[in-house]
Amino acid sequence: MKTLKVVKIGGNIIDDDTALAEFLQGFSKIEGPKILVHGGGKLATKMAKSMNIEVKMTDGRRITDADTLDIITMVYGGKINKNIVAQLQANACNSVGFTGADGNAIVSEKRPVKTIDYGFVGDIKTVNTEVLEVLLKHNVTPVFCAITHNEKGQLFNTNADTVASELAIAFANLYQVELNYCFEKDGVLLDVDDPNSVIEDINTANYATLKAEGVITDGMLPKLDNCFHAISHHVSKVCLGKPNMLFNQNTKHTTIQA
């Protein structure tokens, strides 16, 4: 069975032109089928503030009203996605930019209101692999932003870590899937002020402890929840850390285990 690498980038890599260019050069050289998923929350936040649109977050997730959805569509699906695709083409990596609406690739529904109304935020229901599989077989790399749709004309903001996790799960019966979350740190840190305090292995048991002790909070919570969701649905490997871990397995990083 072939290996498929699903790679999600975010954090300061997206905001740093040099870091992004270096990452994309390396990513382009990865052999075999691969899918790239990107965030862009910091740039979206910056644009929202410049337009005097209030940014609301809860538990690391963005509250998305109509104005915020417009900004996310422009930033994620436009500026960031097309810039990444253009740079991949410059590195001889043929690629196609996607939202969930393109090719009907990722279908979601509006998150139900319980204690919090997240607005135009979608929870993924199905991933349609057919179109993506055609591209992968022809050495074309899909590049996904964090936007999905409901097949009724409505776009939704969807957590990029979730998009990566659900794509990995959807292909787990066709490939040996490796899911990688790349960001500016070497992995999950025991002490956020100590970049060398990488927790190299996290399993279900110590994850519960780390949450209870407040070591893992905010945006890292949904990221790790998605990691464990993937591992429990037959994704063969899940890692978090700097992009170097993609090219050198001896690079310090965090590995998620069942």
Rank of each mutant, 00 (worst) to 15 (best):
P243N: 00
M47W: 10
D201R: 10
I30Q: 10
L20N: 05
L189Y: 00
T126Q: 13
Q25N: 14
M74D: 14
G40S: 05
T158A: 03
L240H: 08
V198H: 02
H229G: 12
I80H: 05
S232C: 08
A212K: 14
C93P: 03
R111N: 12
N12Y: 08
N91D: 06
T255G: 08
K42A: 11
F247Q: 00
G97F: 01
A21I: 11
D225G: 06
N91W: 01
K242E: 05
L189F: 04
D161Y: 01
E151P: 04
Y118G: 11
T148C: 02
A90C: 07
G32I: 08
V140P: 11
D161I: 01
I80V: 00
L43T: 13
S232N: 14
I13L: 03
V37N: 04
G241Y: 07
E22W: 12
G32V: 02
D201W: 15
N139K: 09
I63A: 06
L36C: 03
N203H: 04
E213W: 01
S165V: 07
I202G: 03
K2W: 12
S28N: 00
A66I: 14
K29R: 15
Q176G: 12
Y207W: 04
V121G: 02
P243S: 00
D70I: 09
H253R: 09
N173Q: 15
I106V: 09
F183D: 12
V192E: 15
A205S: 13
L167W: 04
D16P: 00
V85G: 02
I124A: 01
V198C: 08
Y207E: 01
L88Q: 08
G97P: 06
N248E: 15
V107S: 10
A170I: 05
K79G: 13
T73I: 15
S232R: 11
C227D: 04
A146V: 06
K223A: 07
L20R: 01
K42C: 03
I53T: 07
I53Q: 07
T148Y: 00
T68N: 07
E213P: 11
A205T: 15
D194L: 04
I63G: 05
